[in-house]
Design a protein around this nucleic acid. Structure first.
Lengths: 129, 129
DNA sequence: CTTTCTCGTAACATATAAAGTTGCATGAAA
DNA sequence: TTTCATGCAACTTTATATGTTACGAGAAAG
């Protein structure tokens, strides 16, 4: 698919798509081709790509909205608070990334197909139990 | 202390202090008094207040910077991704909050005093091992 | 009872970062 | 050589958190 097509599907802008896909391309998850007939193609078996890989490809963006704080403040109170929060945040982040590593894009595809079937059934029989 | 004093200590604005302290007050962690000689006082034993209580008092702000997404999108792909992410995020959040519940303000105070002593020693003997 | 000091709160302003946009260069196929 | 695509830099817009101003209300001091 082209960035143009993807951006319409996702209600955004082709350049935004390219920005995001660039990370995935550098990790070898997708490939891009220029020129006529070009666009984006998947270049790996979906079963070999985990959400953790995607997270890494996207530059490991900040996981937490909280705790966007100074690394080594002079304030001793702040230091004490940071030490406590760092422990907790680090533990939570480790668990999160571990979980992301357990889900592959193939899993997501399977889940999607499941939902797709459910959806068709529901549309045919809107009032079924 | 007054909001004015606190705001100077924390390099911010008195109104910001009041906004934040309002949550702590509603949870009974601090008390505010108006008028001459008023200000903020701690109203509970620090050993009975955990970081989790503070988190709750602050209105349980969003923990994660990622996944700021629609609850039940029409897009089945988005649904599948959300389901996977929700699992992971929920697990991480549970762990984080559990950890926050294990740290009391008294713990932080003790840690602060430890740092304070260290700091004094270092100032007296800057080149000690 | 008037002044002074404080919080409470709403409304407004500013700053920052994420998202979106424009423009143009580069490469590839028709 | 025209058309279609990505690559990339620079700029604009938008959203949100933070900071600010203004004023009302309560409480103590004089």
């Amino acid at each position: 698919m082209t960035s143009e097509q993807l951006s319409k599907t996702l209600s955004t802008n082709p350049v935004v798509i390219r920005r995001i896909m660039a990370g995935l391309r550098d990790m070898g998850i997708v490939r891009s081709e220029r020129g006529h007939g070009g666009g984006w193609t998947i270049s790996r078996d979906l079963a070999t790509v985990s959400l953790r890989d995607v997270y890494t490809a996207l530059g490991e963006p900040m996981v937490f909205a909280l705790g966007n704080r100074q690394e080594m403040p002079d304030c001793l109170v702040e230091q004490a608070v940071n030490a406590a929060l760092d422990d907790a945040f680090r533990a939570a982040e480790v668990l999160l990334i571990e979980r992301l590593g357990e889900v592959t894009l193939a899993d997501l595809a399977a889940d999607f197909h499941e939902r797709w079937k459910q959806n068709k059934t529901k549309k045919a029989n809107p009032h079924a139990a």
